[in-house]
């Protein structure tokens, strides 16, 4: 019986040790303030028109854009990597492009990976779906964006519209330049993309198909190749000679709804986006 008493006491000790923490209402959250910064973070979401939870993720991205309009670039990527998430609805546009499949595979995406998922600056995170991976569930996008914003940029990017009367209306020309803010000791690559907002089409949203859903930040094309091109970073405090890119606006894209996105990343890790920029085609420059 003495042994029984000892064991019951031990059991109670285990239970007492195994505490439970209840957070009362009013104490469950606190506001966060991120100071002024030149950092522009890139949030890329893998999404699909038949992905029922993707609109929830898109709303989180939208909230973040509202919070940090000058410090966040969002790109919505539609690929064919996971089953039927991206299958277009009959008679509607197919948003899928092959470059997205390459990005997905490069960050460890598999056919069983559920959508939505995303990447913030294509950086490795302890919040990733796989340990020390890159792909993130959308519940941690805000966390990762804030973390990235708190890190000062090592470089900056500028995009300018270039007026060229010789080009047809369907072609736009932009010039992209980079500025070194700190010394950089690795190879750097530049990617230029075109995204489009305001595309009305069908989307499955929490089990219901909405035929009038507004698709935003849809990645239409990667202008200079899937993985971009190598750039030589200038001396600290200097800005590089601008590189020009001609972008053809193809049917049914709407030029006024399009924006040019540019970002630079670490070529050696094929990730770790250092800075991003976005220029709506209705504006002249990101300066």
């Amino acid at each position: 019986m003495s042994m029984l008493k000892h064991f019951i006491i031990s059991l109670c000790a285990v239970v007492a040790f195994a505490a439970c923490e209840v957070i009362p209402e009013g104490e469950r959250s606190e506001p966060v303030v991120v100071g002024e910064t030149r950092r522009v973070v890139l949030l890329e979401e893998f999404t699909g028109v038949r992905c029922t939870n993707c609109p929830s993720a898109a709303r989180i991205a939208h909230d973040l854009l509202a919070e940090y309009p000058d410090n966040l670039v969002v790109v919505g990527m539609h690929g064919t990597n996971t089953g039927t998430y991206g299958e277009p609805f009959e008679g509607e546009q197919d948003f899928r492009i092959s470059e997205v499949n390459e990005y997905f595979l490069a960050v460890g995406g598999t056919p069983t990976q559920g959508y939505p998922c995303g990447m913030v600056n294509r950086a490795v995170s302890d919040n990733a779906i796989d340990p020390d991976g890159i792909l993130l569930n959308y519940d941690v996008w805000a966390t990762e964006v804030v973390r990235a914003l708190l890190v000062p940029p090592v470089a900056d990017l500028y995009i300018e519209r270039v007026d060229d009367a010789s080009l047809p209306d369907s072609v736009v020309k932009v010039a992209v330049s980079v500025e070194s803010l700190e010394a950089i000791d690795h190879q750097v690559s530049l990617v230029v993309e075109l995204v489009e907002d305001g595309i009305i089409g069908s989307q499955v949203d929490d089990g219901v198909t909405n035929p009038n859903y507004e698709h935003n930040h849809v990645l239409r094309t990667v202008v200079n190749g899937t993985w971009g091109e190598s750039v030589t970073m200038p001396e600290v405090g200097q800005t590089s000679t601008p590189r020009e890119f001609e972008i053809t606006i193809r049917d049914p894209w709407v030029k006024d709804n399009c924006s040019v996105v540019a970002y630079i990343y670490n070529s050696e890790t094929r990730g770790d986006v250092m800075q991003a920029a976005i220029l709506p085609l209705g504006e002249a420059s990101t300066h």
Binding site: S29, P31, T143, V146
Partner: peptide, 22 residues
Amino acid sequence: ETDIYFGGVDGLQRLNLPEFVG
């Protein structure tokens, strides 16, 4: 506890997460 943020019309909030769940 880790940093989990969420956005809303009142700005970004950080959740106060329970470390022990029974």
